[in-house]
Amino acid sequence: MEVARFWRTKGQRYQLVGEVCPSCGEKIFPPRDVCPACEKEAKTPYTFSGKGEVYSYSTIYSAPEGFEKYAPYTVALVRLAEGPLVTAQLTDVDAQDVKVGMPVEMVTRVLREDGERGMVVYGYKFRPVCANQGAAAQQI
């Protein structure tokens, strides 16, 4: 069981809390404390919107330990609206419907479970932007 490892990164994983560089304004995710653009220290928290688009994707048929029961599943590099690329799974989508450039949004889902007795690890995944037709779509 690796409890502390997951606990310390919960902010990033549950709600995409990264950083913004106070020197050059670069938005940083995952957080790395040293700005990749200007190499100055950057520790100011910044919560990303969760909006982005698919930069690349792949469907995994042969899964690593702990992920076998989810296979096949689709993973992606997602270009966040604020700039950074992030690696994550796609969810709520069939592999054949994924396209490069497809708009996606962040959701918090189960990443994996530490067996039947261990903890559940939650984190960000992305899915096709959910329709928002509000009351217009009513059919009573």
Binding site: T9, V75, V121
Partner: peptide, 13 residues
């Protein structure tokens, strides 16, 4: 923390 934890195999990267 940022690739393997999300279920990525080395092949998939």
């Amino acid at each position: 923390d940022y690739e393997a934890l999300h279920g990525l195999s080395f092949v998939s990267i």
